[in-house]
Amino acid sequence: MSELTYSQLYNFQPAKFADTAGAWKQWADSALEHAGFLNDKVGQHITVGHWGGLSSELARGRVTDAHVNISKSAGQLQNVETMLTQAGKDFEAAQRDLLNAVGDATKQGYSVVESGSDAEVKAPATPPKGKSPQDVVDEGQRLQTRINAALYRARRIDDGLTGALNGLDPKTGASGPNGSHGPAGWNGSYGSSGAPPLTRPSGEVADWIKQAIDIMRAHGINVTYADAPIIATIIQYESGGNPNAINLWDSNAAAGHPSKGLMQTIDPTFNSYALSGHTNVYNPVDNIIAGTRYALSRYGSLGNVPGIQGIANHTGYVGY
Rank of each mutant, 00 (worst) to 15 (best):
L151N: 15
L84N: 08
G52L: 13
D250F: 04
W208D: 06
K210M: 10
H219F: 10
K210R: 12
D214L: 01
T199E: 13
R146I: 03
L248P: 15
L32S: 15
A195P: 07
L54S: 12
E81W: 04
A94R: 00
D267N: 10
G167I: 07
I230L: 11
I209P: 08
S239P: 14
P14F: 02
G241H: 12
S202Q: 10
Y10L: 15
E120G: 09
D90S: 01
Q13D: 15
S202C: 07
L296S: 02
P306D: 10
D65S: 15
E139C: 04
G261H: 00
L275G: 03
G75I: 03
G179S: 04
H278N: 11
E57M: 00
A125S: 09
Q264L: 05
W186A: 14
P170T: 11
D207N: 05
G261S: 02
P201W: 05
S71K: 12
A94T: 06
N69A: 10
N79C: 01
S259E: 03
D104N: 02
G300E: 14
H34Q: 06
S239H: 13
N222A: 14
T106Q: 13
L248E: 15
E57S: 00
G319R: 09
A253S: 13
P201G: 04
R142W: 03
E120F: 05
D65H: 09
E3K: 14
A149D: 08
F12W: 13
T85V: 11
F91I: 05
D214G: 04
P133E: 02
V113H: 03
S192N: 03
D19M: 15
A125W: 00
T315S: 14
S193M: 00
Q76G: 03
G316N: 05
E92F: 04
I308Y: 00
V102N: 10
W249N: 01
D19W: 14
Y152R: 02
I235T: 08
G182Q: 06
N252K: 01
E114H: 04
Q8I: 09
I234K: 02
L165T: 13
Q309W: 11
S259R: 07
D29W: 09
D104V: 02
P177N: 03
N247M: 01
Q211R: 10
N244Y: 04
G88M: 09
G116P: 09
G220R: 07
H50D: 15
L77T: 10
L32Q: 15
E139R: 12
Q95T: 09
